Computed example of a mutant assay.
Amino acid sequence: MAASTLVPLQEYLETSYRPDRDWIDGEVKERNMGEGQHAVLQKFFTLLFGTREQQWSVRVLPEQRVQTSTEHYRIPDICVTRRSAPFEAIVHTAPLLCIEILSREDRMSEMQERVEDYLGMGVEIVWLVDPRRRKAFVNDALGLREAVEELTVPGTAIRVAVTEVFAELDELEGKAGV
């Protein structure tokens, strides 16, 4: 289970955590991560968006600090901003998309708090990806729903087949073609 510690905002902003941590209402909160499945999917999304930054007019920022409100700083697994958005050391301008990859100890109720922070700051859509169950979900103004065939960002050319998201993981775990 992720732990938390009370820390003043300025100290949080001046400290390098490894891995980086969220800052919520004065508490520095560890994030669940570090598993192979998580790493494989994080690499997939980083490469996918990285190779299409020009085509999709986006910028991909893995594990980027995002200030979602005056009292909340989150670190999404993948943050995707519009290419036209200002480059910021800490993202204050609402990203186009935030992607969260569930780790073994993550719970959907905890993820929902993260999603609400992102949507509350103006993020258009959040993707939640569960590597163990091989499921992907989208959350936006319409609520949470499973993406059965494709993950998309409305109003953009961004489209990713759910099977493509899990293809490398299936191969590594001997589940290809299952």
Rank of each mutant, 00 (worst) to 15 (best):
A39N: 14
W23Y: 02
F45N: 00
G143H: 07
G26C: 06
I101W: 02
F45H: 01
H38S: 09
P62Q: 01
F137Q: 06
D25E: 14
L102M: 14
R74D: 04
I78W: 00
P76I: 00
R31H: 00
V115Y: 09
E35L: 07
V138T: 13
L102S: 12
A85E: 15
A89M: 13
S109A: 15
P131L: 12
R31G: 03
R133E: 13
V129A: 10
E27K: 15
T15A: 09
E116S: 14
R52E: 01
V126C: 15
L9A: 06
G36I: 06
G26Q: 05
H92F: 08
V60P: 01
L61R: 10
E71M: 11
Q67A: 09
E124K: 15
M121Y: 08
I125S: 04
A3P: 00
W127D: 04
A85Y: 12
W127Q: 05
T46W: 01
V28F: 06
A3M: 08
R107I: 07
E100V: 07
Q54V: 09
E88L: 07
V66F: 15
D77A: 03
A141T: 14
Y17P: 04
W56V: 01
E116I: 15
L128F: 02
V7C: 06
D25P: 00
I99P: 01
N139S: 11
R74E: 05
I99F: 01
R145N: 09
V7T: 12
R133Y: 10
F137P: 03
F137R: 04
Q64I: 00
W56R: 03
Y118N: 12
E30M: 08
V28I: 13
W23E: 01
G122A: 08
F87G: 12
Q112W: 13
V66Y: 03
V80T: 06
R21P: 03
R18D: 05
F137L: 08
R74A: 04
I78D: 00
T70H: 12
V91S: 02
L41N: 03
T81C: 10
F49Q: 02
G143Y: 07
A89S: 14
I78C: 01
